[in-house]
Amino acid sequence: MNNRLILQGGLAAALCLAAPWASALTVDLNKAASPMANISTTTNGGWSWSHHGVGPLKGTLDGKSFTTYCVELNQPLSWYSKDYSLANFSPADKNMLDRLYTVASDKVTDLTKGIAFQLAVWEITHESLDKFQTKYAPGSSGLFGGANLDAQHTTAFATANQWLADAKALDASKISWSTQKLTNGHYQDYVLAVAVPEPETYAMMLAGLGLVGMIARRKQARAGKLGTPAV
C-alpha cells in the first residue's frame, strides 16, 4: 500500500509545493475501500475514553486517488464527498509529520501497519508533553493513549513507537515529505502529504524549463524574421 498523494509529473509535484491549492477541495473518502479496526483512545491521561475506527483512509482529493489519516478525535469521519480547505499544521507538528512520512509512509503494507501509522499521527497531533510514545494505556509519560484494539493488531503500538523514534532521530536534511492539513469545521481533519522531489530532480526540471524557454524564444525570433515586411 502506498500512502502517497502523487501528482503525476515532476513539475506538477514541485508546483504543488510552491503554490497554494484551490480554496475549496473535494475530499471523497470511500468507506468500502478503507480498512478499519476499532480502538478506544484518550487525550487527557485516561480520565475519559472515546471509541474510534482506526486505519488508513482511501478516497480521492479533487478526483485524484490518495490515502490519508485523521488528525482529530472529536468529530465524525467525512465519508463521501465533502468540501475541505487547506491549512498549516503548527511548525512542531509539521516537522514531526514530515519526518514520520519520510521514515514510514512506504512501510504501510497491511492494516496493522496502517493502524500503527494512524496511532503515530495521533500521537504527534495530540501529545502535549513531547514524549512521542503511544501507550497501550496512558500514564505519567503522556496524555494520549489507546486500548481495546483487536488482539491481532496490538503490535501496532510497538510499531508506532519505533516509527516515532526513527522520525525524531532522522537527520533534517533527509526529510523528503511535506505535509499540510485538510480541514472542515464539521468533520475530521486529515493529512495531505506529498513527496518532495530530490535536489537532482529539481535541477533536471529547471534545466528542462530553461530548454523549453530557449526553444520558445528561438521560435518567436524566427517568426519575427519570417513575418510580412511593413509597407
Rank of each mutant, 00 (worst) to 15 (best):
M1W: 06
I6F: 01
G10L: 15
L11N: 08
L11Y: 15
A12Y: 11
L15W: 14
L15D: 09
L17H: 14
A18K: 12
P20R: 12
P20K: 15
P20Q: 14
W21T: 02
S23L: 08
S23E: 13
S23K: 15
L25W: 02
T26E: 09
T26I: 12
D28Q: 12
N30D: 15
K31N: 02
I39W: 00
S40P: 02
T41C: 12
G46H: 06
H51I: 09
G53S: 07
G53M: 07
V54W: 12
P56E: 13
P56L: 15
L57A: 02
K58S: 07
L61A: 01
L61T: 00
D62A: 15
S65K: 08
F66K: 02
T67P: 05
Y69T: 12
E72D: 14
L73P: 09
P76E: 08
L77H: 01
W79G: 00
Y80E: 08
Y80F: 09
Y80D: 10
K82M: 01
D83L: 06
S85Y: 13
L86R: 01
N88D: 14
N88R: 12
S90K: 10
P91T: 06
P91I: 11
A92C: 09
D106M: 08
K107F: 00
K107I: 00
L111R: 08
K113Y: 01
G114R: 08
I115C: 06
F117A: 03
Q118D: 13
L119F: 12
W122T: 00
T125W: 06
T125G: 07
H126P: 00
E127C: 08
L129H: 03
L129P: 00
D130T: 10
D130R: 08
Q133Y: 10
K135Y: 06
S140G: 08
G142L: 09
L143R: 02
F144H: 05
D150C: 14
T155Y: 05
F157L: 14
F157G: 09
T159H: 06
T159F: 03
A160N: 04
N161I: 11
N161V: 13
W163S: 00
W163P: 00
L164T: 01
A165Q: 11
A165R: 06
D166M: 07
K168W: 04
A169L: 09
A169V: 03
L170R: 05
A172M: 10
K174D: 13
K174E: 11
I175K: 06
S176Q: 06
S178Y: 04
Q180E: 03
N184A: 06
G185V: 01
H186Q: 10
Q188M: 10
Q188P: 03
Y190I: 07
V191T: 04
L192R: 02
A193L: 08
E200L: 15
T201L: 13
T201S: 02
Y202L: 05
Y202E: 01
A203M: 05
L206F: 05
L206T: 09
A207R: 05
A207I: 04
G210L: 06
V212A: 14
V212C: 10
R217I: 15
R222A: 07
K225H: 10
T228S: 13
T228C: 04
A230W: 09
